[in-house]
Design a protein around this nucleic acid. Sequence first.
DNA 1: ATGAAAGCGCTAACAA
DNA 2: TTGTTAGCGCTTTCAT
Lengths: 356, 356
Amino acid sequence: MTPETSNPEMAQTLQGRKPVETSTGRATINDVARVAKVSVSTVSKVVNGRYGVAPATIAKVHQVINELGYETSLVASSLRSTRTNIIGILVAEFEPFSLELLNGISATLRGTQYDLMAYAGNLSPEGHAGWERRSLSRLGGTLIDGAIIVTPTVEIPHSSVPVISIDPHTGADMPISIDVDNYGGAYTATSHLLELGHRRIAHIRGREDLQSAHLREQGYRQALEDAGVEIEEQLVHHGDYQHEAAVLAAHDLLDLPHPPTAIFAANDLSALAALQVAGEHGLRIPEDLSIIGFDDIPAAAQSTPPLSTVRQPLHEMGAHAVKMLLGLLAGEEVESPGEFPAVLVPRKTTAAPDRG
Amino acid sequence: MTPETSNPEMAQTLQGRKPVETSTGRATINDVARVAKVSVSTVSKVVNGRYGVAPATIAKVHQVINELGYETSLVASSLRSTRTNIIGILVAEFEPFSLELLNGISATLRGTQYDLMAYAGNLSPEGHAGWERRSLSRLGGTLIDGAIIVTPTVEIPHSSVPVISIDPHTGADMPISIDVDNYGGAYTATSHLLELGHRRIAHIRGREDLQSAHLREQGYRQALEDAGVEIEEQLVHHGDYQHEAAVLAAHDLLDLPHPPTAIFAANDLSALAALQVAGEHGLRIPEDLSIIGFDDIPAAAQSTPPLSTVRQPLHEMGAHAVKMLLGLLAGEEVESPGEFPAVLVPRKTTAAPDRG
DNA sequence: ATGAAAGCGCTAACAA
DNA sequence: TTGTTAGCGCTTTCAT
């Protein structure tokens, strides 16, 4: 119960002009209170602009705050109060897809009262299923006022804070979510190849447990069917949205006795992998093989040749997520919007098949 | 002092199989302790794998944890203990530059014990000077074990956690920092223009209070001088690394009675602005005007025509920052590395001046 | 092997 | 107008 708990050396600092640091390198509200000779609650009131503090006291406290370089601890205050004015965005990792989204989210949040905290906590030893539940639970309710979860793979439990999910990969009982038209985008990509004159069009799949992958495959199949092209099952190859598997897939596909003239990969990462493998096979792109991806990540524009793809309007999707979340936070009713349109971005990896 | 503080409804849940939720939507260590009929300290020991708990107790506690979906609160535990295993990256905002860096940082952190938290807290009403100090103070010492600060503009105070700064824009007393060769990059960009045959080369400056801007201008001036080209001061125009000012600058420059045939902008954002203005002036790029930027942000590759620029190896710089920070965290001595090389990326906005 | 109790830095009733 | 007090959820001695 003795009040001399910490940093006794700063007891009479107001007269000495030199800036004061706490021994631990960080001033606490207690330090401020002691130096200013007021109670911690008074300091708290000043810091939070509450009514009922004498002007002279306010001035004194502010002076000490400046002297000590005091800044309220996010952690401590968030533990006690409900509002933190921080929006959390939870991602499995910071790859191009999340980064694009983050860009749109950040831009939309500018000028509002909210700060943005992006958290990637995929590093659990048990693999990464359920990262979203863990992260949300660890941050939710205290640190952040609301969350945007990117490509969650499992159901999000009803959490203590409002949640919006972007491009959820399960079909299930998600909270309010934002999605691209996976089916339509795949249909568009495949049709583009068809219109160029391709008939032997292969597909490298996405992760089997994710609904987006299924929808993209369905779009692909439907486009072929509508064009009256029979689907050869050996041209539909396993993949999982990652580089490794796509490299394998591309090898298998190109080693076929009668290889495809075009490949539609379920995402850009896979398409880029196929592009690389095609090069190793001595194939010229797009003369010998057309390749198209899905997502339009930044790297797609920078490959040689630049990758044709289908774009998810990630920027707009992020922006929309923010608007919905702010609505939720303001206590409004919000509804999931329809699917965002996927648009064809033809670059240099698609062309008519070489009839030579 | 009564132990029945919260969630009394989950008192006899072990027999009922259905999953239990707390009334507030989030189970706490107290809920677990009560349901498992042990003390909170025992639960804490189990969660953190401390010695001295009976196997049977461990099993029971784990079972309850699963039932309740309990997850330790980052906020609460970080308030009490020193280690959080979270690295913080502090940015003014999530723009392309920081995002690129984040990408490299994230990749390097993968597989380590650390999670990554990126925080953008520029939204203070007083403008954004000093955001780095505030953010660091708010998160440091408790939430994060170490920090990487991107383009800090003021001196970083000795903080309670290890700090690495990337591309600090002051020349001053920074903590360990990572930097690109601003001078050399600017020299390279200007030389590129010179070699193409340009003589009337304009420069749109960066923010005057930032050292990087001065170095880039010096590189520009030195390259001209070394080439024996006299500098016309009216061709060196104010800018501040932002779109707005660059638009103004480009207008002024192109409205000159004897306009430049080439522009070296202090960063890509400014160059892209110039590109846009040149279009409005009816100029063909690169026939009528060459433009080169600095940074190589993703948007640079996607403009029409794609922007020639000088690249900062942001990925490597981020990776290096992580390595140094991990070293610091492990108690090792680390030194600031030399400047990272800036490399010329000629794209389609630079060409020999049109002699027509 | 287990639990009681103190306290991390802060906010918010409530008293004075 | 100011201070006292009781926690937020957790970790950590220190008893038992």
